[in-house]
Simulated assay, not measured.
Amino acid sequence: MIEKSTRYRQYSDHLVKKFGQKVYKLPVNLPGSCPNRDGIVGRGGCIFCDEEGAGFECLPNTLSITQQIQENKDFFIRRFNAKKFIVYFQAFTNTYLPLPQFKENILAAAAEEDIVGISISTRPDCINDSYLDFLQEIKLQRGLDINIELGLQTVNYHTLTKVNRGHTLAEFIDAVQRIKQRNFEICVHIILNLPWDNPLDVIENAKILTALGIHYVKLHSLYVVKGTALASIYERGEFKIIPLEEYITRVVTFLEYLDPEVVIQRLVGKGPQDNQLFSNWSTSWWKIKQAIEHTLAEKDTWQGKKCDYLNGKALKF
Rank of each mutant, 00 (worst) to 15 (best):
K4F: 10
K4P: 15
Y8I: 06
Q10M: 08
Q10G: 00
G20I: 09
Q21A: 13
L26H: 07
P31G: 03
P31N: 10
P31S: 14
R37Q: 12
G39E: 12
R43A: 12
I47G: 04
F48E: 05
E51P: 03
P60V: 04
N61Q: 14
Q67N: 13
E71N: 08
N72S: 08
D74R: 13
F75N: 01
A82T: 01
K84M: 09
T95P: 01
A111T: 11
D114H: 13
I120W: 05
R123L: 02
N128S: 04
D129M: 12
L132D: 04
L132T: 07
D133M: 12
E137S: 10
I146F: 00
N147C: 10
E149D: 15
E149G: 09
Y157E: 15
T159P: 03
R165E: 02
Q177E: 13
Q177C: 05
Q181L: 09
R182T: 06
N183D: 14
N193Y: 04
N193G: 08
P195W: 02
D201S: 14
V202K: 03
L209A: 06
G213T: 00
A229Y: 13
A229C: 04
A231C: 12
R236Y: 01
I242C: 14
V252G: 02
V252A: 00
V262H: 10
V262I: 15
Q265P: 05
G271M: 04
S279V: 11
S279M: 05
N280G: 08
S282M: 10
A291S: 14
A291Y: 04
I292R: 06
E293A: 03
E298V: 03
W302V: 05
K305N: 12
K306N: 13
K313N: 10
